[in-house]
Write a protein that binds this DNA or RNA. Sequence first.
DNA 1: CAGATATGTGAGGGTAGCCTCACATTGGAG
DNA 2: CTCCAATGTGAGGCTACCCTCACATATCTG
Lengths: 206, 206
Amino acid sequence: MASRISSQGGRPPQRRRGHERVAALLAAASDCFVERGYDATTMTEVAARAGASIGSLYQFFPTKEALAEALMADHAEALYARMERLVEQAPGWDTQELATRLIRTFADYRRQHPSFTTLVEAGGSLPPMLGRTIRQRMRDYLCRILAIHAPGLAAGELRPAAMVVQQLMKAAVALQNEQPAALRQSAQTQLRRTLELYLKDLAQTG
Amino acid sequence: MASRISSQGGRPPQRRRGHERVAALLAAASDCFVERGYDATTMTEVAARAGASIGSLYQFFPTKEALAEALMADHAEALYARMERLVEQAPGWDTQELATRLIRTFADYRRQHPSFTTLVEAGGSLPPMLGRTIRQRMRDYLCRILAIHAPGLAAGELRPAAMVVQQLMKAAVALQNEQPAALRQSAQTQLRRTLELYLKDLAQTG
DNA sequence: CAGATATGTGAGGGTAGCCTCACATTGGAG
DNA sequence: CTCCAATGTGAGGCTACCCTCACATATCTG
């Protein structure tokens, strides 16, 4: 799980020890976020857990937010890789089959990486920009995959695909948080169909 | 929605104006928690939103935690009332029918009261004791109802009912957060069945 | 009205936590 | 080996926020 560090500030590691430190720091951050949540974890604790000092932590991550974003970037990359691998393996599927597999991949990854779930669901408590970044990135990934491999939906226009993806997001990420009353009726119907798909798959998987 | 204020400290209101203030403060807290999450909302903001000063807020709620707990107490009371009303209306149901209705009631309440969901799901970021209190109370409520109205499960022994209730909790409260790998196999099977029930109902409701 | 109690106010104490800085140490290139 | 950039360190600045306190005002009882 090589990490690319946040784009803003924070010099990337260059020597071997630097890379090791970054990996340890990200692992520590992951554990802390899962156990205590984003707000409650302190930078001091992350550093201590990684066997480093605060200064060392700030050497690579200029901000607590940047730390979370780097962790999220790693997750996003890994998840995206899984999805692309999945799509490459069997290009002949129709939209529904593809959606089912993608959702299962997504759900599996969530189960295997609790910190990913923690960050995605932290929602309101995260710094606004970070929250938006995370959701945007997830949406982009799913949208790109669906747009490429579901030509029936993305033929020329982007709106429908984006809508479906948004509903996939809602189903897979924030199932219980969403408020159906706030959704338009047509979208709601489509969401229900997506939900059924997701739930059926989830029930099979366990 | 008359509130009973936290048990620990914090004198309950006695005059008319006091009751109005408490209601306004709880409403403000509810909004803030939903928008920003528990950690990110400040007591100053809650007070300002309710048109009061900080001193006024601390007149009734001795602690930020007490404020959240009072809000949660209101929710718990309202939800419990709904559940009891439901059970009284049709005492002839079998276990499955009852469970389905209870879960729907639970899901409906969650949709109608976002701050309830916010507090229940805040999980790791809440002060440990508050989090435990919240989960314990929800478990007690569901357990009591199931124990009373599903004699087949609660005949003498409490263990099976408690287990089912725990799984109901997992299904209804933290569907995606749980890690099936950490569960025992038998429990997992039962959980799956409960999940299917929950999901089926959710799909129907929208 | 008068006394008593409840309620209202906001400046400030205390603290926790993010982040900086000045300097020590390590490791690799020439 | 020598030198320089990378990495390591932790005390402390600074800010934000929870909560207290001394006092003002409002509301109720007699």
